[in-house]
Amino acid sequence: MTEEEQTSASAPAASPEGASGQGTGAQGRLRVGLVGAGPWAEETQAPALASHDGVVFAGIWARRPEAARALADTWDTTAYDGEEGLGELLAACDAVAFAVPPDVQAPLVVRAARAGCHVLLDKPVATGVREARAAADAVAAAGVASVVFCTLRFAPATRAWTAEQSATGGWFTASARWLGSLYDPASDHRFAASPWRREKGGLWDLGPHVLSVLIPVLGEVTEVTAFRGPEDTVHLALRHASGASSTATLGLSAPPKAAGVHLELLGDQGPATLPRWAGSVSAFHAAVDALVESVRTGRPDDCDIRFGLRLTEILAEAEERLGKR
């Protein structure tokens, strides 16, 4: 199942008033705008921002103005229209959350950073290393805070588990399997219409989530091997800086009865299995908390845009390996 079905550091600004000096909203809360009004924004970002006590949901801009207006009406915020409207949204906000395809996201992040807005990105940052690096460099140059929303890094159950296993150490190997049935002929899931998922497959949609757990527990990826399975399924074999190895099977085209998520570590303490999680909204709440904390303290989050860039580099290397086979 996909994350939707499961219901290095940049230098952030130390001031909670935002790098642009615009000030903050009611009671000193960060004013956060949303770029994007598709299914993921409807299900996750918009309801999370509207229900978060620590921020002000300042408005929505989308490439489809009618979608932005409908979502803004649902959550009692302001819709901004057209190219001029995007600039108005950035001027009205201290931070911007993104719910758009990765290769649309990257240049918009550059624009937001240059406008002095902190950024809360969706994964992956981009599907090209050059574009991801340009976004990361713009964030660093602007001195704004950044967080990349990888669900497993912020869902309470999996976040706590990852921190615990990282502190435990002594891991010998790990195996991960994340298979969705998005493209099964019988599927009518609304995310099946996503062009970027259709083009890039499970490697880019699900790979960031798996890597966002494996890397903090096992260490930096130092070697990547990849080969193809059925349909869009990809098998990865990774070596980590700790000396441990891991494997990952990723795909969106599995039969429904084969779909599911499993991640297991093996080491000195025996096996440890990733717990189930529920609720993308609660996970996004935690990502907003992380951004607010980074803005407040000036300390980069562990899952910031530089980490997001590294995920893009690893996935691009895997894709290159696939092209050579």
Results as ranks from 00 to 15, higher is better:
S194Y: 12
C93W: 11
A70G: 02
D188P: 00
G87D: 12
E17A: 14
A67M: 09
G279M: 06
A62G: 11
R310Y: 09
G128W: 01
L236P: 06
A72Q: 01
W40H: 12
Q105V: 06
A163E: 10
R299L: 10
S294T: 06
A283F: 08
R111F: 00
L263H: 13
G170L: 04
T78L: 09
A286W: 00
Q27C: 11
L263Y: 11
W75T: 03
L274S: 10
R133E: 14
A70C: 05
A138N: 04
R130F: 08
T7C: 07
L311C: 14
L214T: 08
A138K: 02
G207L: 09
D301L: 09
A112W: 07
V100E: 08
V104F: 02
L120G: 00
G169D: 01
A11L: 09
A67N: 07
P101V: 12
A19M: 06
F172S: 13
T168I: 00
A141G: 08
E42S: 08
T77W: 00
V281K: 11
A290F: 06
R228C: 00
G54L: 13
S181R: 03
A192R: 13
G251N: 09
R239L: 07
R198A: 13
E43L: 11
A174V: 07
A41Y: 04
R114A: 03
E88N: 14
R64V: 13
S246T: 08
D188E: 15
A157D: 13
W75H: 15
D103C: 01
G251F: 06
V32A: 09
P101N: 10
A258M: 07
G38P: 06
